[in-house]
Amino acid sequence: MELPRHWRLRAARYRLLGARHRSTGEVVFPREPRHAADAWDDLPLSGAAELYSFSVVRQPATDDDAPPALLALVRLAEGPLITARITDCRADELTIGMPLEMVTRALRALGPDGLIVYGYAFRPLVWPA
């Protein structure tokens, strides 16, 4: 069962923990090994984002990804672009450039006896709509 590989990413997946460069202010997500502690500080990102592009996945890679699922490239307010699902939304409600907000959702369950993997997804703003 895949436990450690999901567990070790929990801070990034649950609350968008990225990193900011101490002198340039550049923000990265996710934090990678090359973002060394002597120059980069942990930074939880706000979750505010903008839709860069999206698709409707009708042939999913696993039975867990209930089709049709909305897959997107999302530009975080702090700069990084990430891949995530769009949730609570129909494809016809989406347009490139629209604002989105981060929510934490169940990304998948690793089988009926397995771990539930939680992580970020994005949705159109609820309020103010």
Partner: peptide, 13 residues
Amino acid sequence: PGFDEDTITMAIE
């Protein structure tokens, strides 16, 4: 709830 929601996700929000 949606496909990707459960007590934990709603509690977090």
